[in-house]
Amino acid sequence: MANHLLIGIGGTGGKIIRAFRKTIYQEFRQTKPDNAHIGYLYIDSSDELMGLEDPTWKILGKSVQLGENSKVRIKGQNLRPVLDSVDQYPGIQPWIGDRAIWNDVLEA
């Protein structure tokens, strides 16, 4: 479990996570430094920055792209399917918490 969670929402959020991960890699030559426990959650309705082979996530010949378990693709602004199948997102499942709390958000 991470001590820190960096959340990126939308294209700008994805670019911030990408820049942060590149900086971490430049400093430590690894994406998960031993002295920092960082988790990531990137939520977007566009696939633009989510591709595993997206070259913009590379630094010093290494990809720092997030794993699929840290990304949530939202299509059509509909959170219900994501929350209904949150077990398919093991990287974010602990951050969702009690599913019942989200009912107010989904009904709005």
Rank of each mutant, 00 (worst) to 15 (best):
E68V: 05
N69I: 04
N69K: 13
N69D: 15
T31V: 13
I38G: 14
K32R: 15
G39S: 10
I38Y: 11
T31D: 12
G39C: 12
K71Y: 06
D54M: 04
D54T: 10
E53L: 02
K71T: 00
V72A: 05
L60I: 06
L52Y: 04
P55M: 05
V64I: 04
D54A: 10
I59M: 01
R29I: 07
G67L: 10
Q26I: 07
T31Q: 10
I59F: 07
V72H: 01
G67C: 08
T31P: 05
D44S: 12
I38E: 11
L41M: 11
E48I: 14
D47K: 09
D34Y: 09
W57C: 01
E48N: 05
L60C: 03
R73M: 03
K62D: 03
Q30G: 13
K32C: 15
L60M: 08
Q26C: 07
S63I: 01
I74L: 14
D34E: 10
E68L: 04
D54K: 01
V64L: 12
Q65M: 05
I74V: 04
E53H: 02
H37D: 13
G39H: 12
Y25S: 13
E48Q: 11
A36F: 13
K71H: 01
I59D: 00
Y40L: 11
L60F: 02
P33Y: 09
N35W: 08
N69M: 11
D34N: 13
L66M: 00
G67I: 01
E53Q: 03
L52G: 14
T31R: 10
H37L: 14
Y42H: 14
Y25E: 12
K71L: 02
Q65S: 02
A36Y: 15
V64Y: 01
V72Q: 01
G39R: 07
D54C: 06
D47N: 11
E53P: 00
L49G: 01
V72D: 00
G39E: 15
V64P: 06
Q30S: 15
M50A: 12
G61M: 11
